[in-house]
Design a protein around this nucleic acid. Structure first.
Lengths: 361, 361
DNA sequence: TTGTAAGCGTTATCAA
DNA sequence: TTGATAACGCTTACAA
């Protein structure tokens, strides 16, 4: 039974099971299970004794056994579908994860994390995780305007929360009936944020503004582009005065876009960048050409980071509480797992941190 | 279909099991298991039929059941012990993870990822994962000079590989007997890298060099500091000419250290920064003070990133293949799991990418 | 308040 | 080459 010789070559120390606890506490296995899971049907006395023994033995429930006996896997999934190249540049993602984990860790829930190349692989992975019963739920990031994931996850019955999704999905094509969202969503109000941004720039006197957006197809990219147009229309600015261009979020494309923008016949007096890295790259292009910031060009970064504070001049940025957003998403996923209703939760509105890179044109 | 309020009653689609396959293929469960796991003892014919049915049903092994019946969990662990603040600044980490996953994904192994506040929590987590049988092995990052983790993991018998560890642990205290490493290790030769760096700077004519290192206590920090001293000694430079200061890797401390360094009576003509963010911050401080780079100050970043290429001037950097390093680590962990010997594997030597931030003083 | 026993989906050990 | 059958560690009816 407890003969150590036969066990294995590497002799991994034996992990205690409830059987061990039952034997030592002199009760049955089920009593142990009840005691440890705070279920009624066991005396205070036994409960205390069982708990003490479990503590002594350093017992932890075998996650596989738990998952197998119909309980939860105690694990959530998060997939990031991005080409390896785009990885690790923005601070956004790791901060989001850190917030997510804060919530999960408190409940002893683990996070399965995987980086894949594309959306198709991501979907295949969800299918596999579902079939393997590996995760209890998933957080979907980087939602797209045409996104197959909510449909897939809903059909699998795999609990999920979309992080950064839309409050109201744009009907696409425009005359299509508005469908109810398939998954719970946490989102940030990009429209209001964009409005603040435009307010700031317009107030300073800017009339020619270019928005260097991120990847086309991402929901928030499209949302920001639409919002900018709306704000421009409100102020009577046409699409030669105010416009958006898309990029892949990289420093290279940010710089390239900036060059093209500055080469135009009537270059803008302000540029809004959809992330910190492109903003820094853009500022660098301006410096290269001897264009003074903010005197001849104002620069704003959507998303703050140390980068924005170490450049010279320091960059005005839209500051979000990213870990907080992650916490919110994690909480919402827990709510979904607890049988909560499908809903849409709004995150904190980002605020504009005016620094030295914006001023009157 | 499903009313929003009744999410709890949602009936998840049933996942196929080998029982389903057995029934449909008209064989026993064990035959199915053998067929699907490439084990002998089943005819070619049956094997093919079983496989076809499994494919049709979209069957995937239930990970919990597999893990419970003595197989592996199909999961590796990675813990990052850092205060949330330091997170997401460097590109290093996500790239490392991306490389790790490439190897694991090919074997359908998942990665459990957790961010914790400190080393103590990390150790507690290893204990829990071990007791829960949640992971088959772990990758240990950010090794320290005094590190409790190898000891702990070895005693638990939890397979592990140290990422970025030392080839030869410094005896600590100096007269202590040299102990054999407890875990397999993949490492990069920081000494040679530092030698290249000093060669480059010394060759340009620099005689006063300061090294703005990262967190004290991290193995590679101490290693780099020692290497710099060795290289300085070789060239007859004393510790007022060449020295290291430690920081927490943040842009703030990088900038602060730079200010102090430049305020010294005899400021250095070159500064080596232990990461990209501090290098950029340092360059910004120099710009702030009107110190021309590289004419009066040369700057080198240990670790390249888009950051180093978007600043003005672009920063000379030590380029590593970080995803490659991650792949190496993952492969080594797989080797350990397959019963391979304890060993120390060396990663690719980083190369110096000379850009505009270094020149003759 | 307790203990017994039947699952959960695999893998592994036997006979047939 | 097959098909019962017993683990694995836990939860949970159900019986005592």
């Amino acid at each position: 039974m407890t003969a150590p010789g036969e066990a294995a070559r590497r002799k991994p120390a034996r992990r205690p099971t409830i059987k061990d606890i039952a034997r030592r506490a002199g009760v049955s296995e089920s009593a142990v299970s009840f005691a440890l899971n705070d279920r009624p049907g066991v005396s205070q006395d036994t409960r205390a004794r069982v708990r003490r023994v479990a503590e002594e033995l350093g017992w932890q429930p075998n996650s596989a056994a738990r998952a197998l006996s119909g309980e939860r896997a105690g694990c959530m999934g998060l997939v990031l579908a991005r080409p390896a190249q785009t990885l690790g540049v923005e601070s956004f993602f790791l901060q989001l994860v850190s917030g997510i984990q804060e919530v999960f860790a408190a409940r002893k829930i683990a996070l399965l994390f995987q980086v894949v190349a594309d959306l198709e692989t991501e979907c295949a992975l969800y299918r596999r995780w579902w079939a393997e019963r590996r995760v209890d739920g998933v957080l979907v990031v980087d939602p797209r305007t045409q996104d197959p994931r909510p449909q897939l996850l809903a059909s699998l019955g795999l609990p999920a929360v979309v992080v950064g999704g839309h409050a109201e999905p744009a009907p696409d094509p425009p005359d299509a009936p508005r469908t109810r969202p398939l998954l719970s969503t946490v989102w940030a109000d990009d429209s209001k944020a964009m409005a603040r941004l435009v307010d700031h720039l317009y107030g300073l006197g800017h009339r020619r503004i270019v928005h260097v957006a991120g990847l086309p197809g991402l929901a928030h990219t499209e949302r920001r582009i639409r919002s900018l147009r709306t704000e421009a229309d409100l102020r009577g600015l046409d699409d030669r005065q105010v416009r958006s261009v898309t990029t892949d979020y990289s420093d290279a494309e940010g710089a390239e876009a900036t060059r093209r923008i500055l080469d135009a016949a009537e270059p803008p007096t302000a540029i809004i960048y959809d992330n910190d890295v492109m903003a820094v790259a853009g500022a660098s292009v301006a410096a290269e050409r001897g264009i003074p910031v903010p005197d001849r060009l104002s620069i704003v970064a959507w998303d703050d980071s140390p980068l924005c504070r170490v450049t010279h001049p320091r960059l005005t940025a839209l500051v979000r509480d990213t870990p907080g957003f992650g916490r919110l998403a994690a909480q919402e996923l827990l709510a979904v797992l607890d049988g909560g209703p499908l809903r849409t939760v709004q995150g904190e509105l980002p605020h504009l941190e005016a620094r030295e890179s914006t001023g009157a044109p």
